[in-house]
Design a protein around this nucleic acid. Structure first.
Lengths: 134, 134
DNA sequence: GAACGTAGTTACCTTAAGGAGACCACCATG
DNA sequence: CATGGTGGTCTCCTTAAGGTAACTACGTTC
């Protein structure tokens, strides 16, 4: 392996972009695993606990722009919007499943991993953590 | 698949934490692939183009806390510090290699992926275009 | 004694990611 | 007419991630 393999824009580094946005991989996975590749907006949203409306829509837009999803509007009376995976989206589902399956098979490793110092203050611990040296 | 599989702290979601910090996976991979699992601070740093000193050290600290790395200080004349993968670290190298190998094998999919609207001016984009026409 | 290399620490700053919550337009139902 | 469901948009806000650059301290070499 050469230095060149690790210049800024090599393929390995770019893979990380899929995981850089919090919900992208989960949308890919859920759309594929629970909705057979296509789902209406509301149904998809409800199957992703924790995502805010804003981030949900924003992530879908980014994924559509990226070519991972198609957005179909049945412009009927209450406009029904359906999202479906593109072929490119399906490619990336393969990657996501790889990673998620690893997580399932290695849950013990994930349990063994201690959280980072800075990552445990979930806004509730922030308030009680204000007393270091004065 | 049930809703319960997607509650906040399921294994699949936690895997993402490894990729949440920009340099963690690269350090794991590089340490394993280019340094046989152990390297001195400076050598490791030099094999990771783009990382700032601060983030390099900070990420190493977090990884040490997480149990992915050991830090050995040969307190000799100029203190030589060596980082080596722990068994847990080796586990995660497996995951990282999985992802990076996918990236290598699917570079065309990565090329086909259009960047997000908001992600136009990331560092890699800036660098790869820093010598634009102007 | 100035510069260099090792291995950091610290302060300061910018940006982007993410979340909260209000609002819009449409229609149906009670 | 108020409520609820669809599928959004908008603005405001907080936090964390990451980067820059300066500084430490030690020892060697020019």
């Amino acid at each position: 392996m050469q230095d060149d393999d690790w210049r800024e824009d090599c393929a390995p580094r770019r893979v990380l972009e899929i995981f850089a946005t919090k919900w992208t991989s989960m949308i890919l996975h859920t759309l594929n695993a629970r909705h057979k590749g296509a789902a209406r907006s509301g149904a998809l949203h409800r199957s992703l606990p924790g995502v805010s409306k804003k981030m949900f829509v924003q992530t879908l837009r980014d994924m559509e722009t990226g070519g991972l999803l198609d957005r179909h509007i049945d412009s009927t009376v209450p406009p029904a919007v359906t999202y479906r995976l593109t072929p490119l989206g399906h490619r990336f589902v393969g990657l996501v499943d790889l990673v998620y399956d690893w997580g399932r098979d290695n849950a013990d490793a994930l349990d063994a991993l201690q959280p980072r110092e800075g990552a445990r203050r979930t806004r509730s611990t922030v308030l009680s953590q204000s007393e270091h040296d004065a």
